[in-house]
């Protein structure tokens, strides 16, 4: 997933962002709190178990959720799935960064389909995490709700439907370009488009 490079001199302000951090390991939570503190987050909400986090989702307006895939009482994937289908607005659509260490073979597709905004591989590196936070702050993907998936649109590169398929969306364009249905432009018209023109500034 390509991320535009972040200018080191550009400014960010996370002082007023309400961030929920979820990690069942005390040391993992310590790392997250210190890193997010460095980014400027004032007092992040912390939950070490899914049940406590669910209560926070119900009682706080959240701007960002950072969650470990392995929680004490449930999988992080299941929590994200619950959040996305919870209908607790606007938190159900809040940006979610899911962190994963070793991913079990059986959980690879869960990571893709649970509805997280971004997956980050552990170990946590401040530069990588900050890039991802800025990325989810910049994005404005459509929120999809259907029986098999709930979360931000997983197709955000706009490269058309997958090869060999016709696409399921009304605005999917066919891969093959058809015949022109209007007359070709004249060479003069093309030249005039390319010609530099004086502009009054």
């Amino acid at each position: 997933m390509a991320t535009p490079p972040t200018n080191p001199k550009s400014k960010i302000n996370l002082e007023r962002a309400t961030v929920l951090l979820m990690d069942s390991s005390p040391q993992g939570m310590d790392i997250l709190v210190q890193v997010l503190g460095g980014f400027g987050v004032r007092t992040p909400l912390r939950a070490m178990a899914g049940a406590a986090a669910m209560d926070m989702v119900k009682s706080h307006l959240l701007d960002l959720i950072i969650i470990d895939a392995q929680l004490a009482d449930m999988d992080g994937y299941d929590f994200v799935k619950w959040l996305r289908t919870s209908k607790i607005e606007p938190n159900c659509a809040a940006p979610v960064i899911l962190m994963s260490g070793h991913t079990q073979v059986s959980n690879v597709t869960m990571g893709r389909d649970c509805g997280a905004s971004f997956l980050v591989a552990k170990p946590i590196v401040p530069r990588v995490l900050l890039d991802r936070v800025i990325w989810v702050a910049r994005e404005n993907r459509v929120f999809i709700e259907c029986p098999t998936y709930c979360g931000p649109d997983r197709r955000f590169k706009f490269v058309g439907p997958p090869p060999g398929t016709e696409g399921r969306r009304a605005d999917d364009l066919p891969l093959e370009v058809g015949m022109a249905n209007t007359p070709n432009m004249s060479q003069d018209a093309i030249d005039s488009l390319l010609q530099p023109q004086k502009a009054q500034l």
Binding site: T6, N7, P8, K9, S10, K11, I12, N13, L14, E15, Q34, V35, L36, G37, G38, F39, G40, P126, R127, L129, L130, I134
Partner: peptide, 11 residues
């Protein structure tokens, strides 16, 4: 807030 560089250094 702070610059991206400051945020990384502080973290």
């Amino acid at each position: 807030g702070k610059t991206v560089q400051e945020a990384m250094d502080d973290a």
